[in-house]
Design a protein around this nucleic acid. Structure first.
Lengths: 259, 259
DNA sequence: CATTTGCTAATGGTCCGACCTAAGTCACCT
DNA sequence: AGGTGACTTAGGTCGGACCATTAGCAAATG
């Protein structure tokens, strides 16, 4: 790759020199302005932004430009747009779903392997369990029990098991009362869910072991025993990862062998 | 909040029942379609999507609709749009910047406290160091050394120190060769940077200690000693967090006292 | 009176067509 | 040869029109 080293493109040099200038797009300018006002708290959550046509007269921009700006904010999770009378753009604080979706795109786009997802979970979740043991409330414990009861339901289909499994893990993260950690774990759990959906290794035995491990971890969290919580969670996610990867590898081999 | 419990709004019940139907927006449909094709690999990275006017004739949608769809993909980091002749929408795989920006919005929007950020780093980074010790390459070591040398430069301003600090931590994550973990750490480091920018506790002593800790951790990573890496990193981020929070708390008190 | 139905207004969604701006290409002129 | 400017192709912006959805109110209806 030959890098251009010249300071000008080879023509005569005038005495006057100007730096390259940035010309931002109008919709970006408006989006940035609105975003700053939202994040600064100037617009309260749930407040309605002016209607598009009103923004047109206020900003002197065209409606297309304004709509693009609103679309940007919508994708970023900063506003929610409702149609119809009394509709409009309503201010929203970004939530973990926005993070989850962008993480999901990263995973799909860069084809991050299941092993990397499980590895990441092994990094994060034991610490979540530790914090959960320290900060859990009664409601957190209820959520944990509810999710685990749903997992214990033998008759439920695979999808229900996996969803309940996700719910339990997210409940652990929620009990940590660290919103950022919760956001990461939500995104991660969802991704592991979809990646595991086609795995065939989830049988009654796996379910039984899962429920037992969850119960044990929940017990430590209830007892506010951070050491036990981190230790048991570590063991749980590690053994789960090992089990998944064993099946995963076997599948790869059988696929490769069958071709 | 009185929740509506009725299944219909109180009128006569016809025998025929219909579920609420979703009517997606045209731009969302197009965005979804293009997104799937990009993620499935049908469009290679760097490939140019058809020009807007060409998409108009292909999809029978208006240009405004198509532009909104492209704007969605742009915000999600799936395409990059260039103006001028030979411009257009070029396919891009989402990178960690997209995750970092959405995490940044989450942090600002939900006013996540610095203590939570540091807590999250304590969860993630020791594991990163462990993986780095296992998987680091020679290039990774070079990056670590370069970043730490930049930190050691006593004469540099605060911003340079903080940036070099971020670079080093990101380099550790990169050395783990887990793209998801790297994405998380990039987002997190950037956020901690901005949150720490105004802290006044970074003096020469802090710099000296930081450099020393980094050197020690780098040494463990170089020696491929995961246990030492995780232990030292744990200690480093923990003591850094304690130091920051001490100043943070003092600042809060002095502000409260002065008011 | 209660319910249903229909009308009206407000607001986002879509479309069309025009023009502006940015940036390669290339022929022409010096 | 080298610069200059017209041409061309792309996105960016604009204005206006009309459609679709929904809330609220009014009229019809039993």
């Amino acid at each position: 790759m030959p890098e251009a080293t010249a300071r000008s493109s080879g023509s005569r040099q005038s005495a006057i020199q100007l730096a390259p200038m940035e010309v931002p797009k109008a919709s970006d300018v408006l989006a940035r302005e609105l975003r700053e006002r939202i994040l600064s708290g100037e617009f309260a959550e749930g407040a309605a932004l002016p209607p598009e046509r009103e923004l047109v007269v206020q900003t002197q921009m065209s409606r297309a430009t304004i709509r693009e700006a609103l679309r940007i904010l919508e994708v970023q999770g900063l506003v929610r747009i409702k149609t119809g009378r009394a509709g409009g753009a309503f201010v929203q604080r970004p939530n973990k779903d926005a993070v989850a979706s962008s993480v999901s795109l990263l995973i799909r786009g860069r084809q991050i392997r299941l092993s990397a997802l499980l590895e990441t979970r092994e990094a994060i979740e034991p610490y979540c369990a530790q914090l959960a043991a320290l900060h859990r409330t009664a409601e957190d414990l209820d959520a944990l029990d509810a999710a685990n009861d749903a997992i214990a339901d033998d008759g439920s289909p695979l999808a229900a098991f996996l969803q309940a499994n996700v719910d339990w893990h997210v409940a652990v993260a929620t009990a940590s009362h660290n919103e950022l950690l919760t956001g990461f774990m939500t995104a991660l759990s969802q991704a592991i869910y979809t990646a595991t959906e086609n795995e065939r290794f989830v049988d009654q035995e796996v379910r039984r072991l899962t429920v037992r491990a969850h119960r044990s971890i929940t017990k430590a969290i209830r007892a506010q025993d951070p050491d036990a919580a981190v230790r048991r969670m570590n063991r749980h996610v590690h053994s789960y990862a090992a089990a998944v990867l064993k099946v995963d590898k076997r599948t790869e081999i059988s696929v490769a062998g069958g071709a």
